[in-house]
Write a protein that binds this DNA or RNA. Sequence first.
DNA 1: ATAGGCGCCTGTAAGC
DNA 2: TGCTTACAGGCGCCTA
Length: 264
Amino acid sequence: MPELPEVETTRRRLLPLLEGKRLLEVRHQDPLRYRHTERARERAVEGVGRRGKFLLLALSGGLEMVVHLGMTGGFRLEKTPHTRAEFLLEDGVLHFHDPRRFGRIWVVERGAYGEIPLLARLGPEPLSPEFRPEAFLQGLRRSRKPLKALLLDQTLAAGVGNIYADEALFRAGLSPFRLGREVSEAEALRLFQALREVLAEAVALGGSTLSDRTYQQPDGLPGGFQKRHAVYGRAGLPCPRCGAPIAKGVVAGRGTHHCPWCQR
DNA sequence: ATAGGCGCCTGTAAGC
DNA sequence: TGCTTACAGGCGCCTA
């Protein structure tokens, strides 16, 4: 699903298509999901940024378009049966594709995120220098939630979703069921490092495209990180480290994959 | 404070 | 074969 690496890949692909271009209009028939898009009419796109899983398009006149891809959202160069909105640009059309309609778009005054509470309280970017091991350790220790739930929370680190939470916990050798307040300092640091490594590798490979091909880049290219998944989507298959079958359970309502031998 | 469960959505896969 | 049911999950919301 679109998590930090997929959204970052999307941002990089959109950059040459959008930056410096004039947005004539955003067409759709769903004003509840795609809010205040009329404000974007005849605005220039001044920048294409990202915070966590949110895409942030800086628009002229001090406005900002915020896009969350939800589970199945993405931009495409071609119209699809699930095109939900069309971005009419001075030199072409960009299609917002979203079969399950969990994606959202807002146009707001730049930085005014009152309508988007999750964006307003987002934690640090895990690939930036603002992501500090001390604060991460404190955050884990303060909570009785399981580690998997803490990674999904967006408060300790922005942009982590189900795939990368499972993969980071595997690399750190930590069970997704372990409670935050029970981890040692060394374990917390392992998780901190593992998270950064997994996310950086996934960004370098263009994110993960699962077999349902839900996530694609705008030109239809798949990502490459799915080939490196050690546990996600591999229930019953051998652990790449020890060969034991990967187990599947539920944490925080999400399918959770781990190696019962390597992750304690 | 936090955990669990539901609802939103729709395509796909599994079960009968 | 054709139908029904389960499942995938990011996030908001409600309840205990």
